[in-house]
């Protein structure tokens, strides 16, 4: 009989543990949905504590995704599952997933993208990366988060702008290296950006890798997160 390698074993263990936790999380989030909109209710605004609960639940979920993905990137063999993807539908899904949480804080999430825009990417990984960034922006944005996507020089450029105070100066490097997580202080921002950077890096064409950029080109000096995929 063959012995499975220890790496495989712990991965399997982790994956099944997370699978279980995510089941619970799904039930929790779904129950929050039902509590917010009991049948027959007409109120638009949901009570503050529930919104907070949902936000924390989504944060947990994003972190599960990040931890597992990063674990695999460091240990495993993997390659991104690249397919032609409707970018408009992807952004639309992000809008749907975050709508309730953002609406409770009176933040509008707007999209600017050609409905026919199609690009090659790993849809699920990209969803994870953008959701993570939106989750960060949730903390800093005042009223608006703007998602836009265009094609430039044979790359897909996705900008995530917020109208908050902008990224602190020490974070404004052109491309945080996937090998080196930046600071973990201040609500885990560093891990999220590190994760997004690693995901971008997984997308490659002829040695050209995807990358991210942080700047303060958002409205009124707000943060702009740029994802560039070849």
């Amino acid at each position: 009989m063959n012995n499975p390698s220890p790496t495989l074993d712990i991965t399997t263990l982790l994956a099944s543990a997370i699978h279980d936790m995510k089941n619970s999380l799904a039930i929790i989030l779904n129950t929050i949905d039902e509590l917010e909109q009991p049948p027959g209710s007409t109120t638009e605004q949901s009570p503050q504590p529930l919104t907070q609960l949902r936000h924390e639940g989504q944060r947990l979920n994003n972190q599960f995704i990040q931890m597992l993905a990063l674990y695999r990137i460091h240990h495993g063999r993997y390659s991104a599952n690249i397919n032609d993807t409707s970018i408009y539908e992807l952004l639309e899904q992000i809008q749907l997933e975050n709508h309730t949480t953002l609406a409770a804080r009176n933040i509008r999430l707007t999209i600017d993208c050609d409905g026919e825009l199609v690009w090659f990417c790993d849809r699920a990984l990209l969803l994870g990366a953008i959701n993570t960034i939106i989750n960060n922006a949730y903390t800093f944005a005042r009223q608006q988060i703007h998602l836009s996507a265009t094609l430039q020089n044979q790359s897909l450029i996705i900008n995530i702008d917020d109208d908050g105070p902008g990224y602190p100066a020490q974070m404004l490097t052109s491309d945080p290296q996937p090998q080196r997580p930046i600071n973990f202080q201040g609500g885990g921002t560093g891990l999220g950006i590190y994760f997004a950077s690693a995901i971008a890096h997984l997308h490659q064409v002829n040695q050209r890798h995807g990358h991210i950029t942080l700047s303060n080109h958002g409205p009124n000096g707000g943060g702009r997160f740029t994802l560039c995929l070849p």
Binding site: H19, L68, A69, Y78, S79, A124
Partner: peptide
């Protein structure tokens, strides 16, 4: 899926 697909569906593209 519970985690990102790229890792789960390895080898079954």
């Amino acid at each position: 899926t519970a985690e990102s697909t790229a890792f789960m569906v390895m080898g079954a593209l």
